[in-house]
């Protein structure tokens, strides 16, 4: 199937990825090619099949509700692009 040009722009927006206008056509061709491959699944009747949730059919493990992590804030913020007073800095979001 082929995507509409505006669909490619919408997907890029949802994925929060900047795509230059002159890249959209090539990207559309590539994404449509991949979707064409994927759509071969439609041949298979899966109406009575339970979707696989986990390869080993395992339930999610639970643990006691106690604090186990130590504070690593300084170590983790050492690799952040911009921090101040223990906070991550981003462009202003509230005027």
């Amino acid at each position: 199937m082929d995507l509409e040009p505006e669909e490619v722009e919408k997907i890029a927006h949802l994925a929060r990825i900047a795509v230059a206008a002159d890249e959209l056509d090539a990207l559309n061709t590539e994404l449509s090619g991949i979707l064409g491959l994927v759509e071969r699944m439609a041949e298979l009747d899966t109406s009575d099949i339970v979707p696989m949730a986990h390869p080993l059919d395992m339930p999610q493990r639970l643990r006691p509700d106690v604090v186990t992590e130590e504070n690593h804030r300084d170590a983790y913020q050492a690799v952040a692009p911009a921090t101040a007073n223990g906070l991550y800095l981003v462009p202003r979001v509230i005027e």
């Binding site: 997907i11 890029a12 994925a15 929060r16 990825i17 900047a18 990207l27 981003v90 462009p91």
Partner: peptide, 27 residues
Amino acid sequence: DLEDLYKRSRGEGFGAEVKRRIMIGTY
């Protein structure tokens, strides 16, 4: 702004194949 930060950081940081897969998954 924040959206520009996300979009350009990701647009510049990821290569073509990673972007394709993220977009297929997003779709």
